[in-house]
Design a protein around this nucleic acid. Structure first.
Length: 495
RNA sequence: GGUCGCGUGGCCGAGUGGCUAGGCAGAGGUCUGCAAAACCUCGUACAACGGUUCGAAUCCGCUCGCGACCUCCA
């Protein structure tokens, strides 16, 4: 598999040429959500970023196995190993079975993912569906001497691990650094050292979600599920592991340690982290009261929003920012994104209908042909540069200008080489639909619009401007703009 | 306090030692019954200060500001 794709690897802190372990196959694991509440915009950003990465890898010809888990047990509130299970807590609060909570929010997640046109992962494994694998992984770590049991709980022994292996490489921390940030252990604590983390936790009688294990009745720790499930479906070593930047430490650091503790080798070749979301320059968080749910964004039903913005507007907005930069949500930025999104989609409709026409009387424009080829290459260069969608879009807009110029006949299509025209059409379609994953949101009732437009044309012929203006304003009220061009009359989506 | 990142024109947002993306908004123009759309032209920006260099927004140092992680979070 030949390519120029470079990926920023969080582990090396450098852009590296992407070389699949087993081409043409690529294994990609992305940390999914804990399904104890509605999926939030930050989740959406991360999953959309990896959706585009997934789509691009496929476009390049890789056969990608994309695994994104559902965390439905083991993720605790509060201090990492002492809080309440998030799912259980919510279940008690709503007086439901924990699995009802899981089902409810998993369905909600899928719904939003579909609206955003994110492709479903190839495997979406849940933690409760892989208890055996987690128990086995824990046993192996204990056997290798990197974990210890206390009162029916098993903890990863960071100290003994770090004597033989590196711990903290991904996040750039040393064990000593971390100790500085921890409170001291009390005599009540089961852990030998504060940086140790739970692989398996003993469950009290009241605990809702618990299972048999070699250490008694309990439940798995949060980090072990990803190690267990990623290795089950992608092997001990796989190509890409992604997730939100906030998972880098401790979650991903723990995953590396767990895998190395089992097999002695690094589990992941390329670690990718998507950056956080801010709103009006501030971190989006519940405590600040500025978090927005996808449905609130779509409906505009939120104090910080002037109006609603569609799922595709959000997706386009995300494309304009590189996945490793923080993305700031503002009304102004969203409005600009909506307008540009529609412009791009109007271009898509135009190019889909456009046909090449040979005309011997018209000379080929070499400069134009060269320019178009350069812009197509520019889109690929952008994506090859660590999936830089913002960079790719710059070239896409240049192509869009050419498409519009061809459409309005300010450039003759015959001035293009047939081959260049086809390349341009294919590339524009591929990028919009297959790579960026954009789609039309309000497919208009084309027959009706066309019928009205016919009346419009006739009224215009006889200079019945009253009727002309009436039709125009009617169509505008449903989001359709009439375009009076030099030689014809058409419609497009309002921007 | 520890670790790390960022600061780009009115707004958003790429980039990166010389060739100075792109989008939105704004101005002018072409077209048009009027408009809209589309296209063309226009803005010479990179937090402050010092240094390295023939040359820095881009490298180094320092200052200021913002943010992330270290504690639930994608």
């Amino acid at each position: 598999m030949q390519n120029q794709l470079k990926i920023y690897n969080s582990l090396s802190r450098k852009k590296e040429l992407f070389q699949a372990i087993n081409p043409p196959f690529v294994g990609m694991y992305v940390c999914g959500p804990t399904v104890y509440s509605d999926v939030h915009l930050g989740n959406c950003r991360t999953f959309t970023s990896f959706d585009i990465i997934y789509r691009y890898l496929r476009h390049l010809g890789y056969q990608v196995r994309y695994v994104r888990n559902i965390t439905d047990v083991g993720h605790l509130t509060g201090d990492s190993d002492e809080g309440e299970d998030k799912i259980s807590k919510k279940a008690k609060l709503e007086n439901l079975e924990p699995m009802e909570i899981v089902q409810k929010y998993t369905v909600g997640l899928h719904e939003v993912m579909q609206m955003l046109n994110n492709l479903p992962p190839n495997i979406e494994p849940s933690a409760t569906g892989h208890l055996m694998e987690q128990i086995e992984a824990t046993q192996k770590i204990v056997k290798n001497g990197f974990a210890y049991e206390v009162n029916g709980s098993v903890y990863f022994d960071v100290e003994s691990f770090s004597k033989q292996h590196k711990y903290g490489e991904l996040s750039g921390r040393t064990v000593e650094d971390q100790q500085a940030g921890y409170r001291t252990l009390t005599s009540q604590d089961e852990k030998r050292n504060p940086e140790d983390f739970a692989l398996w936790k003993n469950a009290s009688k009241e605990h809702l979600m618990k299972w048999e294990s070699p250490w008694g009745i309990g439940f798995p720790g949060w980090h072990i599920e990803c190690s267990a499930m990623s290795s089950k479906y992608l092997g001990k070593q796989f190509d890409i592991h992604g997730g939100g930047l906030d998972l880098k430490f401790p979650h991903h650091e723990c995953e590396i340690a767990q895998s190395v503790a089992q097999n002695g080798e690094q589990p992941v070749k390329y670690w990718l982290h998507a950056n956080m979301l801010t709103i009006n320059g501030q971190k989006m968080s519940k405590s600040l009261g500025n978090s927005i749910l996808p449905h609130e964004l779509f409906s505009g039903n939120h104090a910080l929003l002037d109006q609603g913005y569609s799922a595709m507007t959000l997706r386009f907005f995300m494309l304009q920012t590189h996945y490793r930069s923080t993305m700031d949500i503002t009304n102004d930025a969203l409005k600009a994104a909506r307008k540009t999104y529609k412009k791009v989609m109007n271009g898509l409709r135009v190019i889909k209908q456009m046909q090449y026409k040979e005309d011997e009387n018209i000379e080929k424009n070499e400069l134009l042909n060269a320019q178009i080829r350069k812009f197509i290459a520019g889109m690929y260069e952008g994506m090859d540069d660590d999936f830089n969608t913002a960079k790719a879009l710059a070239s896409l807009f240049e192509i869009l200008k050419k498409i519009n110029s061809l459409h309005t006949d300010s450039i003759s299509i015959s001035a293009l080489e047939n081959e260049v025209f086809l390349e341009m059409k294919t590339a524009y379609l591929d990028f919009i639909e297959n790579i960026f994953g954009l789609k039309e949101e309000q497919p208009a009732q084309i027959e009706l619009v066309e019928a009205l437009l016919q009346i419009y044309r006739e009224a215009k012929q006889v200079k019945n401007y009253g009727q002309v203006d009436a039709i125009r304003s009617h169509l505008k009220s449903v989001g359709i703009v009439v375009k009076d061009m030099k030689n014809r009359i058409e419609w497009e989506y309002e921007e």
